[in-house]
C-alpha cells in the first residue's frame, strides 16, 4: 500500500531530513512511527500524503509511483487516506458536525447519509453532546477527537495520525489509541507518528523508528 525505496526528503536549500528510507506497509497493518522531536516523523507522513515530494528515491502509493501521478489525480489518491494533523487543523467557523461532515461533502455524499453518519461517529468518539459547538469552545482532547472523526468519517484505507496524543493527558491518549485499534479492527490501515514511548510499550504494534535521518524497523 505504501512503499518507500531509498527515499531522501529535504526542504529546498536545506540539509536532508531523511535519507535512504525504505519500508513497505502492506494491507491490514497498524504501525507506530517514532523518533525524537524534529527527527522527521511529520515529514515522512507529509511525503505519504504528497504534501512534499522526495528529492531522491521512489514512493509507491496504492500501487502507483507518485512521480507518475498528475496534479489532477492527487485529490483522488488523498481521498483514500485520512489525516489527523498534529495541530488538528479544524475549521473554526464550522461546527463540530460540519467539520466532520466536510470530507463527505467534498466527496459528494448524499445529505441524508451525512445527517445519519456524522452524529453516529461523533457519538462513538464521545462528542455526541457537542455536535453544534464550534471547535474553539472545545478542549484540546475534544478537538483531537473531532480531528480523528473527520479523518475517519469517509472510511479511509489508510489513516495517518501525527502525534494524535500530543495534546492530551495519558487517560485520553489511551482512549484515543483504543479508538484507533477499533478502526484498525474495521479494516483501516494505520500509521501513527508519536514520540510517546509509553504508548509504544502499552500497545504492541510494529514500530518504525527514525534516528539520525535513517529509518529502522522493529516488531
Amino acid at each position: 500500500m505504501v512503499r518507500f525505496e531509498n527515499v531522501e526528503i529535504r526542504y529546498r536549500g536545506k540539509e536532508a531530513i531523511l535519507t535512504d528510507v525504505s519500508f513497505d506497509l502492506g494491507e491490514g497493518n497498524f504501525h507506530f512511527l517514532t523518533g525524537k522531536s524534529g527527527a522527521g516523523k511529520s515529514s515522512l507522513l507529509k511525503a505519504i500524503y504528497m504534501g512534499i515530494f522526495p528529492s531522491k528515491g521512489k514512493i509507491n502509493l496504492f500501487g502507483r509511483d507518485i512521480s507518475s501521478i498528475t496534479k489532477k489525480e492527487i485529490p483522488e489518491i488523498r481521498r483514500r487516506m485520512g489525516i489527523v494533523f498534529q495541530d488538528f487543523r479544524l475549521i473554526n467557523n464550522l461546527t463540530v458536525r460540519e467539520n466532520v461532515a466536510l470530507p463527505l461533502r467534498i466527496f459528494g455524499t448524499k445529505s441524508s447519509i451525512i445527517r445519519r453518519h456524522v452524529p453516529e461517529l461523533l457519538e462513538w468518539v464521545g462528542l455526541g453532546d457537542h455536535l453544534d459547538d464550534l471547535p474553539t469552545s472545545l478542549s484540546g482532547g475534544q478537538q483531537q477527537r473531532v480531528a480523528i472523526a473527520r479523518a475517519v468519517i469517509a472510511r479511509p484505507v489508510l489513516l495517518l495520525a501525527d502525534e494524535p496524543t500530543g495534546n492530551v493527558d495519558d487517560t485520553i491518549a489511551d482512549r484515543l489509541l483504543y479508538l484507533f485499534k477499533e478502526l484498525h479492527r474495521t479494516g483501516t490501515n494505520i500509521l501513527i507518528a508519536t514520540h510517546n514511548e509509553n504508548l509504544l510499550q502499552k500497545f504492541d504494534y510494529p514500530v518504525l523508528r527514525i534516528e539520525d535521518r535513517k529509518l529502522s524497523f522493529s516488531d
Binding site: Y49, K72, P75, R78, R79, I83, R89, P103, I106
Partner: peptide, 13 residues
C-alpha cells in the same frame, strides 16, 4: 488560505 489547504489535503478538487 489555511482552510483551502486543509480541504486540498482532505481530497477536495
Amino acid at each position: 488560505r489555511e482552510t483551502i489547504q486543509v480541504m486540498h489535503l482532505i481530497g477536495a478538487k
